[in-house]
Nucleic acid binder design. Structure first.
Lengths: 319, 319
DNA sequence: CTGAAAGCGCTAACAC
DNA sequence: GTGTTAGCGCTTTCAG
């Protein structure tokens, strides 16, 4: 099918080396031969076989991405952005949905061996096996950890949740909310909240209520009654999913947002933008993060990179 | 880094062929040697280099996926389902976001040459260059076209929009709607609508209104006034996006759904499930379609497969 | 039962 | 300027 260097060499009556030189613009080759080879190559649609090149050079343009199977919108959004960026630089993502078990990781890496040498670890809500670094080492793959709790050796790009959350809560405080409810139980959401409170002069500090439930859509919806009875005038949810569940409840019960209660979520799910009232939320630093991934891939720094990116508050109609 | 067959052969003092035989369980090898080789392989974490294997066998386990960059939720949903299915069978998706131009396609296929031999074409909203079949041929890649308008040679899996739409409209008619508005201008949405109407005895047939605008969220929102003034008691939108735009409008204006007007969309975007009232819609046959893709990949049928899958009406709160 | 060897398509060091 | 050649790591035919 596809023509090879060797065939091209035979066709043009020169050595494979010369063909290679012409095609790669290395050194000088007689203009005449050059042209002939070039036209021959074009006519036969010569394309280097990347499998062979990769084998020879022991590197590839494929970037493995380990992601969770769970349908978190924000995840897919990030992924899509990354895909586009990779491709624009001539890299391609190879996706594996992963549960984090050593067994599965081993299978994946084996299937990728020699074809993928950089792995972006972007797992969420799964328990990652401690064998991961060892497995990566064995398969000689370089990991880039994105927003991972476990501190495996390698590049780490993390997300500072506090900044965006602090700004969000500050807005609530500044707009005179007196009873703020925090709904959820993720430790990572706590710092920003505390910051906003401690920045506020004591006499102006609102009351802080808590409802510690996991941040699912269902929970947001089910807790509706309880939230409204709490007397809170503003509520911050751990996740947009949960906030959206609550907004579903309020829509159903004719509760006016933000007049009766202001709502802020976390994640910037697409759904938050399409509903009415649109959901104020804290957005992930997707762009910056993905840019950083790309720069690591392209520059392959010897030192392990550790960077943190800030989340950002996005004010919409719900507060 | 990674140990090779050759090294394993040297370590165990046999030929490379014998090692290979043991590792692949081909024919019999002296039990003693067998065990030694096996333990050696395990100790050194031997993993075959897929790049080399692919080169030799001229095939691969990577499946290229051409998808649109546009952030259509339904697209990503389908993609995610496909990813999981592929992986469960030991295949991996390699993603390229594509604008359909010959130039870009050529670049992508060149980058993939020898590494990808099956390409799932799942493009939407882009003009695909007519060079595609030729380019695929040149790179010896087998296409699987998913829901594509252009009839290039190869396997085609298409989506029958009519079935789900007919059922949707039938429900509207059965529930006594008298003025049904169709909002959108996609030709593909017309057949099912016509079917539902012509199946209905003439004296019971509702009135059919039309508003021919493209199915964007913005349009759904902007057309709110016009839709309400049309006097329609039910509206079918070309896309969930547009329906969601309209529901945003109705939420903002305190219009009761479905009492004042029943709403049905098309696509089954996630957002339609989380809002109140949840959006009745017509869903794509994602599972069946992706199963079919997998069976083509695994069975590599000689004959071009042409299959059509039906959409399905999902009734929720909005009608 | 086991091994030698060819070759997938490409790169690049090393001659001439 | 141009050609020869030795691999990258694997599979598999063909001889022993």
């Amino acid at each position: 099918m596809a023509i090879t260097l060797k065939q091209l060499a035979e066709l043009s009556g020169v050595s494979i080396r010369t063909v290679s030189r012409v095609l790669k613009n290395q050194a000088h080759v007689q203009e005449e031969k050059r042209k002939q080879i070039l036209s021959l190559a074009k006519r036969h649609h010569y394309v280097p076989n990347m499998a062979a090149r990769n084998l020879r050079l022991n590197r590839s343009r494929f970037v493995g991405i380990l992601c969770s199977d769970a349908p978190y919108e924000i995840f897919r959004q990030k992924l899509q952005d990354l895909e586009a960026r990779l491709e624009s630089r001539g890299y391609y993502p190879v996706i594996a949905c992963c549960d984090g078990s050593g067994k599965q990781l081993n299978k994946i890496f084996s299937d990728w061996s020699g074809l993928v040498d950089i792995v972006v670890v972007s797992l969420f809500d799964v328990e990652i096996s401690d064998e991961l670094p060892e497995l990566l080492e064995q398969h000689s793959m370089m990991p880039i950890y994105v927003d991972q709790e476990k501190h495996f050796p390698g590049h780490h790009l993390s997300i500072d949740r506090a900044t965006g959350i602090r700004d969000a809560i500050s807005v609530l405080i500044r707009t005179g909310k007196k009873r703020i409810l925090r709904c959820g139980c993720l430790q990572s959401r706590e710092t920003g909240l505390q910051q906003a409170f401690s920045e506020t002069p004591e006499q102006m500090r609102p009351e802080l209520l808590r409802l510690e439930k996991t941040g699912t859509f269902e929970n947001g919806k089910l807790l509706g009654d309880q939230i409204m009875q709490s007397g809170a005038d503003a509520v911050f949810f751990d996740t947009d999913k949960m906030a959206l569940g609550f907004l579903n409840y309020t829509a159903q019960h004719g509760i006016r947002i933000p007049e009766q209660i202001a709502v802020i979520g976390f994640d910037d799910d697409i759904s938050g933008q399409i509903i009415y009232p649109s959901l104020s939320t804290v957005a992930h630093p997707t762009e910056e993060l993905n840019k950083a991934i790309l720069s690591i891939i392209e520059e392959k720094p010897a030192q392990a990179i550790k960077k943190e990116f800030s989340t950002k508050f996005i004010r919409r109609e719900s507060c």
